[in-house]
């Protein structure tokens, strides 16, 4: 029993931190600009493919730096020439703009790298088991993931809460006029924020690429899970996103470990008739079976009962 709990907790934390790594950029952009970047997963994918391309030429480590920079530049261009233009049509238009971007990024990646997965490998220097618990190995690369994720969290927290830049950026969203009056270029601030957020997505891509599958449909397959993280955490709250990531990671991992179903709880359904066949589907589904869709249920429940999310400060 202890073994299961321990392993599940460890797996849950690792998965949660991977989620946070992927979602950090999304929450940065949302908290600073009020834009929910639908194309976030697309930039994450771009990061993975750039990382792959660089790593097979000059190695993984340069890729970890160069790929996010490149993707960040692309992001800034997107903000400068696209998003800024639709900004005046409101948030719905912004959301739709990034929604359209997902199609374009996906197709562009498909055109350049094809539709098959590419062989993006874990760097040799991290390709060994870091430690073994209860006979289960934990690869060093996963520890590296964890490390980067926590580092990003701390750095972001520091920058936003403790530095002048952070203050200016935060003020730019709520009081753009005032900030401009004080001599800051609000447009440029937004452009930088978008670039940084997108670059963070790319960092996640470079790191998750080798661990998962680097393929042109990876953005689509990631699905809306990142939005769940950001919304459950409280739109725009970095700490909230961090906690939500861990929560979702643990929830999912422990759910997989459980084999309970409604039939176990209440005994097998006794009702007869045509409805029974339909009901038996629901009745016999185990928690483990639905584990990966529990976060979506959590999302709906959170939005009903605590609309501003776990740590959000405002209602959308």
């Amino acid at each position: 029993m202890f073994e299961i709990v321990f392993i599940s907790t460890l797996n849950g934390i690792l998965y949660g931190m991977l989620l946070f790594l992927m979602a950090s950029g999304l929450t940065v952009i949302f908290s600073m600009m009020g834009v929910l970047n639908f194309a976030h997963a697309g930039f994450y994918m771009l990061g993975a493919f750039f990382g792959f391309e660089i790593s097979r030429r000059v190695g993984f480590w340069p890729g970890l730096v160069i790929a996010p920079l490149l993707v960040g530049l692309i992001g800034m261009a997107v903000e400068r020439y696209g998003l800024r233009r639709v900004h005046r049509h409101g948030h719905v238009a912004e959301l739709l703009f990034t929604f359209g971007l997902t199609y374009v990024i996906q197709q562009a990646v498909e055109m350049v790298w094809g539709k098959l997965p590419v062989d993006y490998e874990v760097p040799r220097s991290l390709d060994f088991p870091a430690f073994t618990v209860f006979g289960t190995e934990y690869p060093a690369f996963k520890m590296f993931e964890l490390l980067i994720s926590v580092a990003i969290f701390l750095v972001l927290l520091l920058v936003i809460k403790r530095t002048r830049i952070g203050l200016v950026v935060q003020a730019a969203l709520s009081h753009p006029g005032m900030v401009a009056m004080l001599g800051h270029n609000v447009d440029r601030v937004f452009m930088l924020v978008f670039g940084v957020g997108v670059a963070l997505a790319a960092v996640a891509g470079v790191i998750a690429g080798p661990a998962l599958v680097t393929q042109s449909n990876m953005a689509g397959l990631l699905g809306p899970i990142l939005f769940v993280v950001v919304v459950v955490g409280g739109l725009g709250s970095l700490g909230g996103a961090f906690i939500a990531s861990l929560l979702i990671g643990l929830l999912q991992t422990f759910a997989v470990a459980s084999n309970a179903s409604l039939a176990d709880l209440f005994g097998s359904s006794a009702s007869a008739g045509a409805l029974q066949t339909y009901l038996s589907d629901i009745w016999n589904v185990t928690v483990a079976q639905v584990a990966p869709i529990l976060p979506y249920l959590l999302l709906v429940l959170i939005l009903i009962f605590r609309p501003r999310g776990l740590m959000g400060t405002r209602e959308t």
């Binding site: 797996n11 470990a257 483990a288």
Partner: peptide, 17 residues
């Protein structure tokens, strides 16, 4: 075991099982 179609990013809990 059954898991939802293309919804799982992290299979380590399944592997643990």
């Amino acid at each position: 075991e059954f898991h939802p179609l293309v919804k799982v990013t992290d299979f380590s809990p399944y592997v643990a099982k």
